[in-house]
Design a protein around this nucleic acid. Structure first.
Lengths: 210, 210
DNA sequence: AATTAATTTAAACAAACGTTTGATTTCATG
DNA sequence: CATGAAATCAAACGTTTGTTTAAATTAATT
């Protein structure tokens, strides 16, 4: 053991600290002391601070992209040649991410907050990491989306995908504000309720008259 | 002179660096060297790094909130007692912010990117600053929004405002990604086109069937 | 049990961090 | 032109930063 445990402990703590204090706001010493691991372990196992970030992101984003893809495949199978209904497509895109962000396995919550931060990061390296993952989902979802929205001009299509991403990322990354702003009326722990609401909001927005 | 110029130069540079590198990713030395100002000037004029952030945020957010409010007032005057149409309300909320984020006076662009970052920041002090400003807009816009959406239950109402904020913040903060993702098809410099698209997306989302 | 490889460890490195200090320069007012 | 306040300055403070090194320990292989 050792190997497995140390590496995972570093990633778990890094995920949490990157999410709550930001990447540059988190020092390697913050990570190693909380993970109860030697300071040099980070460089031994990852090589650099940035490589830790890359590992943390890929660990969750790879399975997430796969899950989205599989869910869309299933919906396409169910529709038997017919175009998949728009809400189904949106649900395949939004559902897995939102469920991860609310998973009882705490990592998901921190990860999605981290992702919300990283999306706003102009740093070229970070953007390349995110774009590489995002492009996979976009390529997969673009054809069925276009089929479900045949009347949309290309520019309108991309703009609405942009708005979609904004609503999605904000909802996943920031589960506390809605509770504060709504004075406790909204419960972000009701994952399936949130998915339904988000899917209906986005679907209606995507289908709006131009 | 001196006073005015130095203080403004610090705020302008801080706004840009906070936006592009993050708050904790920006050192006071980064700011002062680029602003061509002595290192101690920051503490002389502001007292601390955090106070610089607070000044930078308030400088833009106070007039922005006022402009939103004035625009809504005008739309309410125009509708002469009738409920203001939903797209008008959304336009009063979204338009001024988006125009600021695309203003040729470069500051707006950086500021909105900074705002996008700060929204994702869990730090309590930063959240308090933002919430204080945001609450003013929410209190102003809540009554006409509820009047335009009388069928919405409170929980649905707040959730949709949450989605609205996500789409809006993401659009204002991240004007480069849409260009990359759309392969240049979408032009974020077409401010009024973007406002129209965003207003119609959000309006449709807010009015979706539950 | 001996040997090699894989980890972990404490210690050190220069560089950069936010903040403070006290002297010096610039400015407006008399 | 002198006086007092406001602003700028270079220098230094104790910490903390990411990274490296070489020795010590643990694990796996022969």
């Amino acid at each position: 053991m050792g190997q497995q445990t140390t590496k995972k402990r570093i990633m778990d703590v890094a995920e949490q600290l990157f999410a709550t204090r930001g990447v540059s706001g988190t020092s390697i010493r913050n990570i190693t002391s909380r993970a109860k691991v030697n300071l040099a372990a980070v460089h031994y196992h990852f090589g650099s601070k940035e490589s830790v970030l890359e590992a943390v992101v890929s660990r969750r984003l790879v399975p997430l992209t796969a899950e989205r893809s599989a869910l869309l495949d299933e919906y396409e199978r169910q529709s038997k040649g017919e175009a998949v209904e728009l809400p189904k497509i949106i649900e395949a895109l939004v559902g897995p991410a939102l469920r991860l962000s609310r998973s009882s396995e705490k990592g998901g919550e921190y990860f999605m907050r981290l992702l919300g931060r990283l999306v706003m990061e102009p740093d070229a390296k970070i953007q390349r990491i995110l774009t590489d993952h995002f492009r996979l989902s976009l390529e997969k979802f673009k054809p069925p989306l276009e089929k479900a929205l045949p009347h949309l001009k290309p520019a309108d299509f991309f703009w609405r995908v942009h708005f979609l991403v904004g609503a999605m990322v904000h909802t996943m990354a920031d589960s506390e504000r809605i509770q504060i702003v709504s004075d406790g009326i909204c419960n972000p722990d009701d994952t399936e309720g949130t998915v339904k609401r988000l899917v209906s909001f986005i679907s209606a927005g995507m289908e709006a008259d131009t």
